[in-house]
Design a protein around this nucleic acid. Structure first.
Lengths: 225, 225
DNA sequence: AAGGAACTTGAAGGCATCCTCAAGTTAAGG
DNA sequence: CCTTAACTTGAGGATGCCTTCAAGTTCCTT
């Protein structure tokens, strides 16, 4: 964990402590309210003023990049475990299930996976890695003849967006309700169930534009400094 | 169309004209921005002041109830047509596809179907009717042995929430992208593809609570007068 | 045509959030 | 201990949206 300021010098001890408190407060607040929780709320939980928050994290995206990186690493671990599964299909199914579960228990990670915010260097890198994992898991399961051959990484992202909406609705009242749709989707992803899809998949560019559209659709768009 | 005021007397002619303009402006604005478009924007499009909007529609939910009822009727027509289809499975598939398509081309109807706003008398009634249709379509397709037997109306609502998120992301860049997930879901809904779902379905009460949770998740909650 | 009720207007008050900055406080090094 | 740079603070300006209302305008009735 990098505890030095922009000039390279280490932060003063009180500043380090406040930074740690802010990160922890943000993590908790993100879990409960998602990545667009008011910054005042985070500062309040951390027991510092909002000015201090701005001193440590010049804008929200820097805070997000710092806090959600851990969550993102969690999803990478899930992917690695899935790739280690000798059964390609089961590895893929477990992967999707655990990503969905991660979304269900942490609205912050939902936002990290959905990427409903401006580009952030660390998350971007983790995300690229995650994409690569997903691609491998998908292709492996397809080569094994178990996953429908027309399924793409873009489709997986679409499923994550969908599940995010589902858990946003049902998370509080029935925390495991997403599992029903998960099962239905899995049944639709088996190669044995597949009927051909006429519509072409989104390319990388379209996917990125769609991601940005999500960012502005929920609440006001985030400003860049 | 009821053009009289609360006292029963008909509205003055200029007021009638303004009311009609407001409804049309709101309809267009809802299509493009969804049901939480700023009221200023609607008034601007209608060429009247925001005060006039408040004179005709004391709060947003009244406006929504008025404007989105037509969209809701459209979805009821879709359901009726689907029920008229002699093939129960094809009727169900067409129904879902056309609901999704409706969501894709009108963010207002997305909100009407998702019911991301306070209770409104006319919409509530239309919605109850829609539920009944959906139930019939589902049961009919299940009796024919084509639709998986564990699928419920609550699951269908979940699919609508999911699709709403999907079209919110992809609607601008690839207006038909939702069709991919639609196909996948349909493949998962065939009785022939179904594996049992351990998780129980939401009951009516949970569904209603989930609906309300959606309302507050996107942006600030709506106030009642 | 004139009176009066109905209607419209837009400025103003609220509220929530973002973001900044001048003044005050504290840690670190000599 | 003293100095100074680093840090914190919280009030306050800015923004965007909601909602009200006193003053002005338009329509309807007689």
């Amino acid at each position: 964990m990098n505890r030095s300021g922009d000039n390279g010098r280490p932060l003063r001890r009180d500043a380090q402590r406040n930074r740690a408190r802010l990160i922890e407060a943000a993590r908790q607040a993100f879990v409960e309210h998602g990545a667009d929780v008011p910054l005042e709320e985070i500062a309040r939980r951390a027991g510092v003023s909002v000015g201090t928050l701005y001193n440590r994290f010049p804008d929200r995206s820097v805070l997000i990049d710092t806090v959600l990186l851990d969550r993102m690493r969690e999803s990478l671990a899930i992917g690695a475990a899935a790739l280690a599964n000798p059964d390609p299909w089961q590895g893929f199914v477990d992967y999707l299930e655990q990503l969905f579960a991660l979304q269900a228990r942490d609205r912050g990670v939902t936002d990290a996976l959905s990427r409903r915010f401006p580009r952030t260097p660390h998350l971007d890198a983790a995300c690229a890695e995650g994409f690569d994992q997903a691609r491998q898991l998908i292709e492996r399961a397809q080569r094994a003849g178990r996953l429908r051959p027309d399924f793409t990484v873009a489709d997986l992202v679409g499923l994550l967006w969908s599940n995010a909406a589902l858990v946003a609705a049902t998370g509080a009242v029935a925390p495991a309700a997403w599992r029903r749709q998960f099962r239905i989707v899995i049944d639709g992803l088996r190669a044995s169930a597949a009927h051909p899809i006429p519509e072409p998949a989104l390319d990388a560019d379209q996917l990125d534009q769609a991601r940005r559209a999500l960012g502005v659709s929920a609440g006001r768009p985030w400003r860049r400094p």
